[in-house]
């Protein structure tokens, strides 16, 4: 934290059931080294108890606090106010796109969770499959017994940022296709029909917005491209298996 204080206007998207959406503005004194979520939480604690938003872990492991900050998808618990606004300016906070709004900043992410289950996206996996490029984490074969939580925190930022997701509510979406890719078609051949489809990998138009906003190093765009390669290879090998 710094001694500096900024005066900002927090402009928050509001929507209650059966009400037209609008924005509420809150004048606030903030420390630029606070996180955006701290400011949103203070609005609820001291200014407006009716404000609804999701948050839980406050350190980027749960994925609950995804919002659009000045139009860009952010995990608000690790987004410094300093990085997204300046003294005297307005900071706009809106709910994620491509999900139904429950109330204000809280969205219903049921569709994402449902699809993550449908592709068997693993919540935990052996550390040796975690693809950490870090010289201090060279693996020994025995390390495969260590289990870790997967990188994807199911925050929905990639779904919100994806231009293709906006065109089809049936599109599986970046996080889900990344979950399928991490499982691999070799490991789970039943995934082929699900991902090799109009609302599977071929809906992606390679905008790479998912990778740009992913706060958790999943790199969904690269994984979708890799999944396409896996699909072509699996289709070809099935073709030759049938002929022989």
């Amino acid at each position: 934290m710094s001694e500096t204080k900024w005066n900002i206007i927090l402009k928050i998207y509001r929507q209650k059931e059966n009400e037209a959406p609008h924005y509420s503005e809150y004048k606030m004194e903030v420390d630029p080294d606070e996180y955006v979520l701290d400011a949103v939480e203070r609005v609820w604690a001291f200014m407006d108890r009716s404000l609804c938003f999701r948050h839980a872990c406050h350190h980027s492991t749960c994925g609950a606090c995804g919002m659009r900050v000045n139009g860009v998808e952010k995990l608000t618990c690790i987004t410094y106010i300093r990085d997204v606004t300046q003294d005297g300016a307005t900071l706009k906070v809106e709910p994620l796109r491509n999900f139904p709004v429950i109330s204000d900043l809280a969205v219903d992410m049921g569709s994402l969770y449902c699809r993550m289950d449908s592709v068997g996206a693993r919540p935990v996996l052996p550390v040796t499959e975690a693809e950490i490029e870090n010289p201090s984490n060279k693996w020994n074969p025995e390390d495969a017994k260590y289990i870790r939580l997967s990188d994807c925190i199911e925050c929905g930022l990639c779904i919100s940022a994806c231009p293709s997701a906006a065109t089809s509510s049936g599109y599986l979406g970046p996080a889900v296709l990344a979950g399928a890719q991490a499982n691999g078609l070799k490991h789970d051949p039943a995934l082929l029909e699900l991902v090799d489809s109009e609302d599977g990998v071929w809906r992606c138009h390679s905008a790479f917005e998912c990778t740009a906003v992913c706060p958790s190093f999943v790199d969904p765009a690269r994984r979708i491209m890799n999944l396409r390669t896996q699909i072509v290879s699996e289709r070809l090998s099935r073709l030759f298996r049938r002929k022989s």
């Binding site: 609804c52 999701r54 948050h55 839980a56 872990c57 749960c62 609950a64």
Partner: peptide, 14 residues
Amino acid sequence: RGDLCNGTSGRTHG
């Protein structure tokens, strides 16, 4: 009053 685990539980060390 919020969503699940918005108080102490969500912010547990783990």
